[in-house]
Design a protein around this nucleic acid. Structure first.
Length: 647
RNA sequence: GCCGACGUAGCUCAGCUGGUAGAGCAGCUCACUCGUAAUGAGCAGGUCGUCCGUUCGAGUCGGAUCGUCGGCUCCA
């Protein structure tokens, strides 16, 4: 190790420091104000603790509250303060470990005799504030394994000792302290509890040690923390806003669907929700000829033999619905996925290389016996439909099929205004089927295809199924939760299980490659996420009610109904609101129901044969236009699936 | 499925330490017939999720069960 190191700051300036200097030293070198404000550091882009030594030449940055990642250090430190508070109030509690995810929450798990009550959370939060006002500094220590073991066993922290055992032999063991409290932790932590400006505990729930259901039950507390009370307040306000977009609430307010205890996890679609559902399907269907897909429909019920062949009978048994058929010993399964049916269908005829690629799409409803605790609104349900398709092709056709899939995906997301999608390529897990070299080729092919399609790509190491590398489109909702929309997987198992064969150019029999793919994914889930993405403010072409017509007085009602009929004749979804409410009331309702276009019909419109469209977005009446021009414009907007009714 | 919280009118919620239910919005009726985000009055609406128990008496206490929500796990 050399005696001096050079660090490069974000503005390009370089500093010479003694080896082993810390990020905090760098901050102090730049200025005392920065040193005081520093929360964490970055070495070559990696978040590190301020007190971690810089071992070699590196690019160093100081993280403060101005940095988006600054909050992570604050919340991570708040975790320790929470654990400290719990230990003070419940001396018998054993601490497990805390975690700060990329959202604005932190959590910590405890082994306690009794679950925490909401009153306990209040007490803990109070104690935390007391600790914060005490203003202790966080210190970082590097310990040997034996020292760490001695420390935690003297504290009686059995879970910690167990966690200590999980740390790889060659890894450095660090302990952070503030006041009396010490915790095994990598950091980073802020300098002082004073830098944690405001904390709030959100909720508690049960969990298991290491997520193992057979292991000890722990109690988890969630909280959030910010540099100031003001920042906390605005975060809580943002959560409130997000709640207003909750698809369950919007779905009820806009009359889209109904959820009922008589059919848990199974939505009832109301007419408006059904319009949304059908329009989405029709949109995808309209693209099928362009991308060479054909729709098929396969049975809802199959004899169990099919699922024995596919392997789902064993692997997926508890997730499916099974019952006895009318014949003795006949066991039937309700289909939970389309692939076995499609594979079977493939075998019912002799396939030639000239037939390939075969792209079979199906929108059938699927049923899965999801565990009750996993159900959530319409995003996690027991019955759903996917814009599902399976592609059978010659192995060398796979790359172009993937390209075509991404093109179609980009086209669909563009029309739907779905942005911020991140493609994730999952690489092979530790246990996998096939030749590693083949996997490398397949993984590379997927990454290249993602980039060619213009999506941002990131890698999920070892996250693929054992039989197939996959690409997923991850979409973040308003609460920062990631959802999978599109997915494409290369199946290395099913063609073999079903003995799929086609006649090649050489006259011999060959096994086709098989791809699973969906773009919207589950329609139920998509609709749920899409409601939250748009707040119910759908693009014009997708709006369940596109136009609301408001006659000012009863004498204008006949014209309003004529107009509705004229629009309906051209496929425009219009409604008349001729209730004896004030005009202001009905306009307001049209707005809150997110109807894109409002038409007020009074004497002027009746006399001149015009309308004065009020766009929801612009919130004011536009210039008058003729009825004919309006009908034509809206029909065109539908045909072209436009976001706005009028340009 | 597991852990926790919750379950009162279509919706949002009130109902103190047990004495058989209340508001706002929505709905219906009537009046008003209106020019771009809430007109007024009246009426109706609940076996307090369900079942069992404690009690002279339970929306209120206890148990079970169903469901919902937040997590775990799983996943489209």
């Amino acid at each position: 190790m050399s005696d001096a190191i050079t660090v490069t700051l974000p503005d390009g300036k370089q500093l010479e420091l003694a080896a082993g200097a810390t990020v905090l030293d760098v901050a102090a070198e730049i200025g005392p104000g920065l040193a005081k404000a520093a929360l964490a550091g970055k070495i070559d882009g990696q978040i590190v603790d301020l007190r971690a030594p810089i071992l070699a030449d590196a690019a160093v940055a100081i993280v403060t509250t101005k940095d988006e990642t600054g909050g992570g250090g604050i919340r991570h430190s708040a975790e320790h303060v929470m654990a400290d508070a719990v230990k003070r109030l419940f001396p018998n509690a054993q601490v497990d470990a805390g975690r700060t995810d990329h959202s604005e929450k932190f959590q910590y798990d405890f082994l306690v005799d009794e679950p925490f009550t909401p009153e306990d959370l209040e007490k803990i939060e109070k104690e935390m504030n007391k600790i914060l006002s005490e203003g202790a500094d966080f210190t970082r220590e590097v310990l040997s394994r034996a020292e760490a073991r001695a420390l935690f066993s003297s504290m009686g922290e059995e879970l910690k000792l167990s966690r200590l055992g999980d740390i790889p032999e060659d890894a450095e063991i660090t302990v952070f302290r503030h006041g009396e409290f010490a915790d095994l932790c990598r950091g980073p932590h802020v300098q002082s509890t004073k830098q944690i400006g405001a904390v709030k505990l959100l909720e508690s729930s049960g969990t298991y040690f290491r997520g193992d259901e057979s292991g000890p039950k722990l109690q988890r507390i969630y909280g959030t923390a910010f540099e100031s009370k003001k920042a906390l307040k605005s975060h809580l306000a943002r959560l409130e806003e997000a709640k207003k977009r909750d698809h369950r609430r919007v779905g009820a307010d806009l009359g889209l669907f109904h959820l009922d205890p008589l059919a848990p996890g199974s939505p009832f679609y109301l007419p408006k929700g059904m319009t949304l559902y059908n329009e989405l399907i029709r949109f995808v269907q309209d693209l099928y000829p362009k991308y060479g897909y054909n729709e098929v429909m396969t049975p809802q019920l199959f004899r169990s033999d099919l699922f024995k062949t596919s392997g789902h009978y064993d692997k997926f048994h508890d997730d499916m619905y099974w019952f006895e058929g009318s014949d003795e010993g006949e066991e039937l399964g309700v289909k939970a996925m389309n692939c076995p049916g499609h594979c079977h269908l493939f075998t019912t005829g002799l396939r030639s290389y000239r037939d390939l690629p075969i792209r079979w799409a199906e929108f059938s409803r699927l049923h899965r016996n999801e565990r009750s605790g996993t159900l959530n609104g319409i995003t996690r349900v027991r019955t759903f439909a996917q814009d599902d398709a399976h592609i059978y092709c010659e192995p060398e056709q796979v790359p172009e099929e993937i390209d075509s899939f991404f093109q179609m995906t980009a086209e669909i997301y563009d029309k739907l205004d779905v942005d911020g999608v991140e493609m994730a390529v999952s690489t092979r897990p530790d246990q996998f089927l096939g030749d590693p070299a083949d996997w490398d080729v397949a993984e590379k092919a997927l990454i290249d295809a993602v980039e060619r399609a213009g999506f941002h790509c990131h890698i999920k190491e070892k996250d693929a199924a054992f039989y197939a590398p996959k690409v997923e489109a991850d979409f973040k909702d308003v609460l920062g939760r990631a959802w999978t929309l599109a997915t494409i997987q290369i199946d290395m198992a099913m063609p073999g299980r079903f003995g799929l064969k086609y006649v090649g150019r050489d006259g011999g029999l060959h096994q086709p490659a098989m791809l699973h793919r969906a773009i919207l994914g589950s329609l139920e889930r998509f609709i749920g996420i899409y409601i939250e993405h748009t707040g119910g403010d759908f693009p014009f072409w997708l709006s369940p009610v596109q136009v609301v017509i408001l006659p000012i007085a009863d004498r204008h009602a006949p014209r309003a109904h004529e107009l509705k009929a004229a629009l309906g004749a051209k496929g425009v979804r219009a409604e008349v609101d001729d209730r004896s409410e004030t005009l202001g009331f009905r306009i307001r309702e049209g707005q809150t129901q997110k109807i894109p276009l409002t038409l007020v019909i009074g004497d002027e419109e009746v006399e001149r044969g015009t309308v004065s469209p009020r766009l929801r977005k612009s919130k004011q009446a536009n210039d008058a236009m003729s009825v004919e021009a309006l009908v034509e414009a809206l029909a065109l907007a539908n045909a072209e699936r436009r976001k706005a009714p009028l340009d």
